[in-house]
Amino acid sequence: MFKILKLILLLYFSFNFSYANEINTKVDKITKNLRCLICQGQSVYDSQSDFAISMKLVVKNKIDEGKEDEEIYDYLKNKYGEWIVYEPELNRNTFLLWSIPLILFAFGGLLIIRKVSIK
């Protein structure tokens, strides 16, 4: 049982699934993870602004050229900065972002174990 669970978790993290299941095509998947820079809190996918429409085209062209998802993200990050992607990648800057909640969870678990007598 535990092994199966572990396998599932491992697969989950290695494939790095996006939660939104309505993503049908690659373009939709990528543009949903891009911030529309001139809109308030909208993704490129959700926006109909000039900028977002062009951005969707660029992403589509890149996919047609045979570019991988990562290459497209890198290209756009190079042009617009990290700000454009909604999912911050794990690096020196975001290490604490991803780990603080997990550290706190572990810490909380320790506190509870100390409080509770196992008898």
Binding site: L37, I38, D50, F51, I53, S54, M55, L57, V58, N61, K79, Y80
Partner: peptide
């Protein structure tokens, strides 16, 4: 025409 060249320059508008 389609705004894609401006994206190459990192423009937003």
């Amino acid at each position: 025409n389609d705004g894609t060249k401006s994206i190459e320059f990192g423009a937003i508008g």
